[in-house]
């Protein structure tokens, strides 16, 4: 699919923006953590859209946030 851009996001309602970002993030996160991809994606969607866009373009920042999310998730579930 074509890259998701800030202008494409801005043209969509807020909930649709999160949907668009989630559809892009989920397969990337699923490749890292198949069992937790849904929960991790849900957590990351609480982050600002501008930062989520950056994460889509930067695997390093995505991996960093995914690691943070897993730590929070595990602490939450204890």
């Amino acid at each position: 699919p074509e890259p998701l851009t800030a202008s494409m996001l801005a043209a969509a309602p807020l909930m649709d923006q999160k949907q668009l970002l989630g559809e892009r993030l989920y397969p990337m996160i699923h490749a890292l953590h198949p069992n937790l991809a849904g929960k991790i994606t849900g957590m990351l969607l609480e982050i600002d859209n501008s930062e989520l866009l950056h994460m889509l373009e930067s695997p390093e920042s995505l991996h960093s946030k995914v690691d943070e999310a897993i730590a929070v998730l595990q602490a939450h579930q204890v």
Partner: peptide, 22 residues
């Protein structure tokens, strides 16, 4: 407090409802 329903799970192709709980 602890919310056992958090975090909301994203499912591809399913309309995202996560923000409704914030």
């Amino acid at each position: 407090g602890t919310n056992i329903n958090w975090p909301p799970e994203f499912c591809p192709g399913v309309p995202w409802k996560g923000l409704q709980n914030i």
